[in-house]
Design a protein around this nucleic acid. Structure first.
Length: 308
DNA sequence: GCCTGGATTACTGTGACGTC
DNA sequence: GACGTCACAGTAATCCAGGC
């Protein structure tokens, strides 16, 4: 296998730009160079990573899997550089990190891995719990930082936060669903169909508020805290779901396909961010953790809003 | 080995236009 | 208004000559 960092960079750019031409513009090379690099990866792996369309490219199932590894490779290389810095070698101590269930599944592993590579002397103690409890632990000083859905934070006077990723809420549909043929789908339309509700991390409450404000009552078929359960039920045609883009994958665990569509009504985005007790950002371990979080933001998910 | 830039091909989506 | 045709634009892929 003869893959270079260049190959990986070009593939990631194509995945994020959604086109080879766009990727070429992102990395500053010609379109043909990106095409050649991606073909080279596909040839060496023996599987197609991208589906070519007349107006761009999309990731195959294998492409989604490889993209995750590609991100890890890029982050590992970046962290390797930081590890050699004096700050990375010298910093020691303990960091209490709180995280809510849904956020744990999509942010915790990458964040922890990146921080540990850069600051091996800092012992990170992660703990998962419901958001209101984590807020109290932060205020009491039993936790130093937390990764939460920041739009739901109640103790805004005591806690500061920084948005790491803004995720749009969209409609998940089984393949061949009649809504896929429509130009636009509204909340009113969604109420005609059985709805699978994702209840993790206050998401169900936020969804209920959206329907309540619109004066609508959805036909809730099933409520679950498991994103995988939502994915599987939608993919097998049990119902449809509204869920944040951060949780979207085009395949269920069983390998069934699911599609995603925008919702015509304006919906508030889901903001995931790092939260800490006001004034605590001056502590070295917390300060470096915040920097590590910022470096982990991916293109397209950048937000950077600070409320301190 | 990697890249550029140009030419070319194939394909698809879009919009204008004419006809019924 | 519906439908078919056509030109055009945008995209990916390929090939080639040449530069670094």
């Amino acid at each position: 296998m003869d893959l270079s960092f260049r190959h990986i960079r070009y593939f990631v750019a194509a995945a994020e730009a959604g086109s080879v031409t766009g990727a070429a513009a992102l990395v500053g090379v010609s379109q043909s160079a990106v095409t050649e690099a991606i073909k080279s990866i596909e040839h060496q792996l023996g599987v197609p990573l991208l589906q070519r369309h007349p107006r761009g490219v999309s990731l195959t199932h294998e492409g989604h899997q490889f993209l995750r590894h590609a991100h890890a490779m890029i982050e590992a290389l970046t962290a390797a550089g930081r590890t050699l810095s004096a700050a990375g070698r010298k910093l020691t101590g303990r960091l209490g990190l709180g995280v809510s269930p849904m956020v744990a599944g999509y942010f915790l592993a990458d964040l922890l891995a990146r921080f540990r590579r850069t600051f091996p002397g800092v012992e990170v103690a992660p703990s998962e719990d419901r958001r209101p409890f984590i807020e109290q632990l932060l205020i009491n000083g039993e936790l130093d930082v937390a990764i939460l859905i920041v739009s739901e934070i109640e103790e805004k006077a005591a806690l500061a936060h920084e948005v790491l990723a803004r995720s749009q809420n969209r409609l998940w549909l089984p393949p061949n669903h009649r809504f896929l043929k429509r130009d636009r789908v509204t909340l009113f339309d969604i109420c005609e169909e059985p709805l699978i509700v994702l209840s993790a991390d206050d998401y169900g409450d936020a969804l209920a508020r959206i329907f309540r404000r619109a004066g609508l009552s959805p036909r809730v078929l099933f409520e679950t805290g498991s994103v995988e359960a939502v994915r599987s039920m939608v993919a097998t045609g049990a119902g449809i779901a509204i869920a944040p883009d951060l949780a979207y994958r085009p395949w269920s665990l069983e390998g069934d396909r699911l599609e995603v569509r925008a919702i015509a009504d304006p919906l508030p985005a889901l903001d995931v961010g790092v939260v800490w007790r006001r004034g605590l950002e001056r502590m070295p371990a917390v300060e470096h953790f915040l920097q590590s979080c910022r470096q982990g933001q991916r293109p397209g998910h950048r937000a950077g809003e600070v409320t301190a």
